[in-house]
Design a protein around this nucleic acid. Structure first.
Lengths: 145, 145
DNA sequence: TCATTAAGAGTAATAGTTATTAATTTTAAA
DNA sequence: TTTAAAATTAATAACTATTACTCTTAATGA
């Protein structure tokens, strides 16, 4: 019965994960945790990320472009990917009743049993919109935020 | 101006794709087209599948488990994956207005710009439900379909 | 028919991830 | 506190899905 032992490396991975709002990939986690543990290996990062997901402390976010990101926010929510900068952002403002309505919408007329869904949004993130506006406005407006 | 030449292999790949309702992977396409073209290579299958997708004759369906499936049905619809047998099934009975309502639901209160979404359902497919019922009923009922 | 050139076959290369293993760390019993 | 079992790590090998490369075949247009 594989008792799970504490490890500093896993701590560092988890701490890094919850410190970020943009959902890093395994590679990004690796590069950052390496600052604290220069000898950590990519395999250790992968093993601990899947461990954290299995323990329910993190979520695996498979994106449309095939890349896989990780999220330290385990409360139910959807994700949004910016088509400009690639950032993954949490969408927390969802009404639970509307979520269930989505399943019911397709269950009607379908012979199988709908048990759940994955919903993933795409578009332009607030930061990229701000950047875009800044480059549009003329020089004398730059300081107006 | 890269004139696209016709090829029997591509035809066979496309014909196989639209003949299936369960959205095969590149590997499955390969195994099946090989019956007609025993010398076809996996690289040819991949190249033609992406060609078909680029031409708008097929859709690439990246699934949650990381596997990639292909769909010869290009009309707008959602997908459903059976958690028992892994089959991917088209869900055609969706009201377009309800789809847009999904984007509006999350746009409200979000500073970014929602441009679209990917929605993917999971559960038990009709075939697996039928199979389950069959194994439950007693012997004297087997022939009752 | 013949020349041109995209497409195919076969194979090598790559990326992302998982598996293996010897050495190290953690934990708990003595 | 010491120490030994068990889990974890670092390093690396292996694996899987996909793409790239090279040379050959065959579709197209004159």
């Amino acid at each position: 019965m594989a008792a799970i032992k504490h490890s500093r490396q896993r701590d560092a991975i988890f701490t890094f994960l919850i410190s970020r709002k943009d959902h890093p990939t395994a590679e990004v986690v690796y590069e950052n945790v390496r600052k604290e543990f220069p000898k950590i290996s990519l395999g250790t990062v992968y093993r601990n990320l899947t461990l954290l997901v299995d323990m329910g402390h993190a979520i695996k976010v498979p994106c449309d472009d095939g890349s896989v990101h990780f999220d330290g926010n385990v409360s139910p929510h959807y994700h949004f990917e910016c088509t400009r900068c690639g950032a993954i952002i949490d969408l927390m403002n969802i009404d639970a009743r509307k979520l269930m309505a989505i399943d019911e919408m397709v269950q009607d007329g379908f012979d199988g049993k709908i048990q759940g869904h994955q919903l993933f949004f795409s578009g332009i993130c607030p930061a990229c919109i701000k950047k875009e506006n800044k480059s549009k406005i003329s020089v004398d407006n730059i300081d107006k935020k």
